[in-house]
Amino acid sequence: MEEAESYEHVLRLLENKASVKQQIFKTTSTVFNQFKVVLQEICQDMQSDFSKIDQNVEISYSDRGDFEAQLKFSGDVLVLSMHSNVFSFPPEHEINKLKYVQEDSSRKYCGIIHLHNFLADSLKYNRSSDIGYLIGRIFINKEEHFFVDGQSQLGFLFNSFWKGKLKKEQIRKILELAIIYCMDFDLLTPPFETVRQISLEEKQYMGSNSGYPTGKRMGYKFKQELDTQLTPVNKRE
């Protein structure tokens, strides 16, 4: 390849990839801000409605900057975070078989918004060894088309990537399903054999961090629910 041709190729790559990825980042940021607004609205609704039932249950929203927001409800926290990078998919992934993507290959590039579940005490006491769980990922392309990969209903209700832009009512539904999953996902005591020994380091950690390192499934084999392979995208065009 001649020098001039190489340079022209560089410019084409910048146009076809770098510019598209910048556009996707901006689009994902816009959508992420919509998620934050809806999450705050849900918080306000929960505070208003549940205060009539029990005023002792803490419900609060926290904006943690451009890339994170949190909803605390009782002993759980739903952490909403946006990744700063843009991603594609392996060649064998179902998304590459969609007519919508085959018509324009740049449509396969997506920003990602993550939904994690942490115990409220993990954040309150800064227990850095505690485990949080990924319960959903929202993929957004340059046209605001989206699909969701996740646990329970999040894994199959929102997988029609070609259908259209993400709407506010869909954002609310995604967040409500995530909150439901957090509350249904109980904290279980680990098997006795996994906790019957304790090191001095762990004892000292307990004293300064209010308890054992904790996650909702500490000491359990939990491969199936923690499997984060992408949920197959609906094959309809």
Rank of each mutant, 00 (worst) to 15 (best):
I112F: 11
Y133C: 01
I138Y: 09
E103W: 10
R107N: 07
S128M: 05
K142L: 10
N126S: 15
I138A: 06
V101L: 03
K99R: 14
L115F: 08
L115V: 14
S105V: 12
F118H: 02
K99I: 09
I131W: 11
I135N: 00
S128W: 10
F118M: 00
S105Y: 09
I138H: 07
L115H: 07
S122M: 02
I140C: 10
S106P: 04
Y133V: 03
S122A: 11
A120E: 09
R127V: 06
D104S: 05
N117C: 10
I138F: 11
K99M: 15
L115K: 13
S129D: 11
E103H: 12
D121R: 09
L119I: 04
H116R: 12
R127Y: 07
L119F: 03
V101I: 07
E143T: 11
Q102G: 06
S106Y: 02
K108M: 11
L123G: 00
L115T: 07
N117Q: 07
E143G: 04
S129Q: 12
H114C: 14
S128R: 05
G111T: 04
K108C: 12
G136L: 06
Y109K: 01
I131Q: 14
K124D: 09
V101H: 01
Q102C: 05
S128Q: 02
G111W: 07
K99L: 15
I140V: 15
S122E: 06
G132H: 05
